[in-house]
Design a protein around this nucleic acid. Structure first.
Lengths: 178, 178
DNA sequence: CTATTGTGTCAACGAAGCTGACCCAACAGG
DNA sequence: CCTGTTGGGTCAGCTTCGTTGACACAATAG
């Protein structure tokens, strides 16, 4: 059912319909998988967050700051792809409640370099572990080859911008080369 | 940040720490991929929908009704995993504007069997084609083996409930569904 | 005839996006 | 030194899409 040649141009009479159908069903399946998969992937952390009166947006902020300690507000905005105001509504409480600290940039003192406090690391880790179990289960069941395939496809689903961000060393952004 | 050596050569004894680290990075990468991938996967349809003053929720309704014509409201609620009220706010306008029709069930006349009108099919197809291009690009770049792996992992990321729903015959129902 | 079920709907709330406008401090260039 | 730009913060208001709770009503089941 999944075995089909890579030939988008060939339309042998009779087989064309079949191919077309398979492709369409294939794609619709992908839509289903992404919807259900993503939903259930986020369900674990969501439950923890709800108890703390937080949402998915808080998790994302914790995650990406944890991933790139010392990131600037501007870079974080670029990574998340949201507006300053949207970020603010989530970031400010996280700072106020001691999950995140900001220190002025050493080169440019206007910048606020963000990093997790121990408290922030702890929460991020809790959320991470929850998702880790979930993903590891899927990885184990699917096997290493499948995992590699998963990564390749997900990468392809990302836009060019996102791909660049992902490829950027998990430390400082070389954007300030200006 | 901890500066870590990139030397995956060593695998034998004493590699525990290294392995642990790799696993963690592996998992964090999965988080990134799912966030960016899902976001960009939905971006295309979102743009079309915005022009029609609709949102992602409308797309999901069109998608799942298209996938299972004649589905009942109750089943749709179960598939989407949302409340009646949430669905109503999206479903009612779609019916009012002629994208979806409901016909009373022949076995149980309380039920409203939902299906797409030609207008609804047309819109669903537009949205589908947009996403199709995007996914096909990713599939083509990744290759068939990767696609199979992607499917296996995504399936594993789904909860048991969702998996059952997915396995239920798609688009059948002209029979007697209960 | 009564209880339950399938569906619809009102009202209020929360999370997380958005735009527009404006402010301040720090940097950069003349 | 003065001025314009940039990094960041904030107020105000709007939208989408999820939630709970309550109630209505027709149809089905017993």
């Amino acid at each position: 059912m999944t075995a089909m040649p890579e030939s988008p141009d060939i339309k042998p009479v009779g087989a064309g319909r079949q191919l077309l159908f398979l492709r369409e069903e294939e794609l619709r399946l992908a839509q289903d998988l992404l919807f259900f998969g993503y939903r259930d992937f986020t369900a674990g952390p969501d439950a923890i967050l709800a108890e703390l009166n937080m949402g998915r947006a808080h998790h994302r902020v914790l995650h990406f700051i944890g991933r790139r300690p010392g990131v600037t507000v501007g870079d974080l905005l670029a990574i998340l792809g949201i507006t300053k105001q949207s970020l603010g509504r989530v970031l400010t409480p996280l700072i106020d409640e001691g999950y995140i600290v900001q220190v002025p940039g050493r080169n440019d003192r206007r910048q606020r370099l963000l990093s997790l406090t121990p408290k922030g690391q702890e929460l991020e880790r809790r959320l991470f572990e929850r998702q880790r179990e979930w993903v590891m289960r899927a990885y184990r069941e699917a096997g290493p080859v499948a995992v590699e395939g998963f990564r390749r496809v997900m990468r392809g689903l990302m836009g060019a911008e996102a791909r660049e961000q992902l490829d950027r060393p998990t430390g400082v952004s070389p954007k300030s080369a200006a």
